[in-house]
Amino acid sequence: MPNQSLDDQHHDGIEELDNPLPKWWVYLFYATIIFAIGYGPYYWLGKGQTAVQVLANEQAKTQSSANGEATDLGKKLTAAAQNHEVLEAGQVIFTAKCAACHGPDGGGIIGPNLTDKFWIHGKGTANDIAHVVSEGVPDKGMLAWGKVLSPDDLVAVVTYVHSLADTSPDHPKAPEGTPIN
C-alpha cells in the first residue's frame, strides 16, 4: 500500500467555517450575565431575602392563623361515634398503621391488647385513647401519631379503637396495665 502523505491536509481533513455568532445566542449570553451581576447585589443588599428570613416570616403568619382554628376534639369524637363511615375509615387506618403492633383485630402483638378491660394509659374512654394515640409513648415503642395523622384520621382511628372494646380477638395478648372498674 502506498504511503499517504498528510502534508496538505490539516485537522485530519476537517474544515472549519467562521460563521458569525448567532445574534440570539449572543443576547442570551448577555442576558444571563446581566442577571448574574444583578442577582448577587439584589440578594445581599436589596430586597432579596435569604431562605431563613422567608421562613421566619411564614412561620409568624401561620402561628396567628393556627390560633384561630382550635378544634374541639371532644365534640368531634362524640359525633364520630355515631358515624358509620368514620368507623370504616378508622378500620382502614388501623389495618395500615396499627395492626403491625396491635394485631389485625386489636388483640395485641408488640403493643398491648386493645380489646380487653386492661389499660396502661387512662381508662379506655375515647378521650383517653385519643390522648395516648396522639402523644404516644415513645419510650415504649408507641409513636406520637398526632404528628403523622391528620386530625380527621386521628378521630377516625380512635373511634375505631374505642369500638373494639369487649370484642374477642383470635389471639388475645395477656392483659397489661390496670383493670377498669
Binding site: I14, E15, E16, L17, D18, N19, P20, L21
Partner: peptide, 10 residues
C-alpha cells in the same frame, strides 16, 4: 465543515 470556528473559541 464545522459551522463556526469563532463560536468554538468563545
Amino acid at each position: 465543515p464545522i459551522y463556526s470556528y469563532r463560536l468554538s473559541i468563545i
